[in-house]
Design a protein around this nucleic acid. Sequence first.
RNA 1: GGAGAGGUGUCCGAGUGGUUGAAGGUGCCAGACUCGAAAUCUGGUGAGGGUUUACGCUCUCCGAGGGUUCGAAUCCCUCCCUCUCCGCCA
Length: 460
Amino acid sequence: MALPSARMLDIKLLRTEPDLLVSTLRDRGVRLFEDLTEGDWARASVDRLAELDGQYRSLLQEEESIRREMNENATAMKAVGKLPKEEQAAARTPLIEAGRVLREREKDIKVKAEAAMNARDEAWGHMPNITHPDAPRGHTDDDHRTTHTWGTPRDFESEGFAARDHLQIAEDLDLVDFAAGSKVVGAKFYYLKNDAVLLDLALQRFALDIAAKHGFTLHITPDLARVDILQGLGFNPRGESTQVYSIADSDLCLVGTAEITLGGMFADSILDREELPILVAGLSHCFRTEAGAAGKESRGLYRVHQFTKVELFAFVEGDLEVSEAMHERMRDIEEEIFQKLELPYRVLDIASGDLGGPAYRKYDIEAWMPGRGEYGEVTSTSNCTDYQARRLRVRYRTEAPADGKKSKGKNRFVHMLNGTAIANTRTILAVLENHQQEDGTVRVPEALRPYFGKDAISRR
RNA sequence: GGAGAGGUGUCCGAGUGGUUGAAGGUGCCAGACUCGAAAUCUGGUGAGGGUUUACGCUCUCCGAGGGUUCGAAUCCCUCCCUCUCCGCCA
């Protein structure tokens, strides 16, 4: 399903809204060209893009005009068959000769046009999505806007004991085996043990039930996907600082999230409008290389190479009002989950520089993590508008305008949204740390007990 | 892993190297009939790109990529995928 060219944003924006693209690049801090990084690099980048686009289009027109001549030549050849037999040979000869010449010219121009297109798309492919007007602008973690908080972190001091971090709790209750993980696989792999196994499964089931309650169709997805699907969703498996594990001698990658497998489900298809919105939830394992992520957050379960996650995904009509409403809804579902788990959190409206390529707007939920004494990311939900849909060609047929005319509906790109229901390791971390008790056990929140089967996590 | 079949438009499904962008059906839209609906009948309906104020003109697309030819859905090569049967296996 190779794409003719990478069209992450509507290329027409380059001709109609260059200023919007300039501010997009500026807000996101995305440099498209290595030699354009100083001064008004954003403006210069868009100018160069426009130039590359112009070069391609003029070559394309040249190529098409030759094609038309070739077609005319072939049509003329057909007419020869109607001439008297003795005249046919004489009529054919010049046409065959003309056809040969045209074919050579076409081959030549085709190579040039293709090269021009690749040059344009190479740069265009790195153009990120435009940004929601209300999303904060900036490039550091301090630029995120806290929209609201929920719950109050416990005051362990007043409760009379010192909070332990999840590593300590896990060791005390024999819940995680990091040593075996690094021996058998490598650093940042782990085995869950004992009650942690049951907690992991309980969280999965708990999240799936909430997803189903909200109308999401449940899936267990593959843990691998093709490279072109990953690219369609805006992931870069080939980059040098990639987060993606690739399978040798194949075009497959281990998925870093079920966003990939869910989002790819309708690649290359035209949906009926009545089917929308399509809400799917997917349970998958997630694999991340975490290249260059060594540092203070690397201990324990916070940043690991493999975890299990329940992901929410939505395909909605290609209308900002619709997708923005769905985005709020997905964030609400995430909040519902963490409220039921009784975990204090704050919600961040992510700043432009940290949105990544596909997202138009992104909300993160950060749960309170007593072991670190700060909030840490546990979920993330993005409205990617039509950015991913363009590359994957996920469209839907709009209704014909009710004007009584014979005009029919147009095909439009859907808007695609994703969000975390539960990322297991980080949620386990938050549950252990927030609900630890003085006696060393961990209280299981009410909502989770039917799934966990007990009211406390304890040592076996 | 062995043997075979096939990949065509929203979907299903025809297709002889040259009025085939593609029969037929389905779906959809409009109209007729009807109190209304169903059924029936008539007509219209593929996608993407370039160009144009617009009407329009034009290019590409029949799994993907090459090749043969004046001309390829149709012939050749490579690859991918799907299905059926057999074997193996959780």
